[in-house]
């Protein structure tokens, strides 16, 4: 196989472009990392220290940002005064619950759509995807009515169902591509080897596991970061972290310390998840597309 490197030659223009892109990357990093940095640092500062700012143009005063005594009182307050333990649990339960249900139902539906031939299959598949096309807001009111009728408003199962409604089509869509890439002969070989249809399906699950892994992550992210469903369907009994955080903004008192700490509590698990499954996620998302 020939080298797949892109051959480039140095020209004045390419040198200039190199410098320009380096500058861009630095600016971009500041743009993206700085808010997270400020959030993290402010969460361990006392309120007074957090609002200490150098005068405009006084670059030597930048040390003021780092001149503080670390304190974890905001975190402690979150879990003692604000009941964040429950909200954290609600977030985890609704994210994992909907991810698990979507993956189980989605993989079976995707398998069926990938393997079976039946009339109207293309239309059915398109219909499934099309349910994702409407913005969440558009269906929120009718959904709320249905959920209220079913007594699901303000409950974690309600949230799980709401997320599953939106994750399931996505799961089917992603996983169908992965199943399509698994040669049918492997299942046939498995059936000839002595497995039932269901066992043959299970036998190829490891082959679509990158897809399942990638989907699980996207599904958890969707539910974890969701605000709209959580604030409307989950309002009251099933508050999740983003909703609880927004509750810290009160008309007479914006509790910046707790808000920053809540931001860290919300962001950190997803960052860790991202780090752990980083490689997995990239292969998962590209494999469905390019593996021939």
């Amino acid at each position: 196989m020939a080298s797949r490197d892109i051959v480039t030659y140095r020209t004045p223009a390419s040198v200039l472009a190199g410098i320009a892109s380096a500058v861009f990357v630095v600016l971009f990093l500041i743009w993206t990392v700085l808010p997270i940095f400020i959030m993290f640092v402010s969460s361990i500062k006392d309120l007074l220290e957090a609002f200490k700012l150098p005068a405009v143009g006084d670059w030597s005063g930048i040390g003021v940002f780092f001149d503080f005594t670390p304190t974890f009182k905001h975190y402690v307050d979150l879990f003692t005064q604000e009941n964040f333990g429950t909200y954290f649990f609600n977030s985890v339960a609704s994210a994992l619950g909907s991810a698990a249900i979507s993956v189980v139902l989605g993989s079976m539906a995707a398998y069926a759509l990938s393997r079976a031939e039946f009339r109207g299959k293309k239309d059915l598949f398109f219909w499934i995807i099309s349910t994702r096309m409407a913005p969440v807001v558009a269906v929120m009111v009718p959904l709320f009515a249905i959920f209220r009728y079913g007594g699901l408003v303000g409950t974690t199962p309600g949230l799980i169902i709401a997320y599953t409604t939106f994750n399931l089509p996505f799961a089917i869509w992603i996983l169908k591509g992965f199943f399509d890439n698994v040669p049918y002969e492997i299942e046939e070989a498995s059936m000839v080897d002595g497995s039932t249809r269901l066992q043959a399906f299970k036998a190829i699950i490891p082959l679509v596991s990158p897809g399942i892994g990638a989907f699980l992550v996207l599904c958890v992210l969707f539910a974890w970061n969701d605000f709209l469903f959580a604030s409307i369907i989950g309002s009251g009994g099933a508050k999740t972290l983003p909703v609880a955080t927004s509750g810290l903004v009160q008309p007479q008192n914006i509790q910046w310390g707790k808000i920053m700490a809540a931001g860290v509590v919300t962001t950190l698990p997803m960052m860790l998840l991202g780090l752990v499954i980083r490689r997995y996620l990239v292969t998962g998302l590209t494999m469905g597309a390019v593996r021939g």
Partner: peptide, 20 residues
């Protein structure tokens, strides 16, 4: 009879080995 009950063994054109 389903394949599993026929007691046959088959070799496929593309081998169809379990990759994992």
């Amino acid at each position: 009879l389903p394949p599993k009950d026929r007691d046959i063994a088959m070799v496929f054109e593309n081998y169809a080995l379990y990759p994992h």
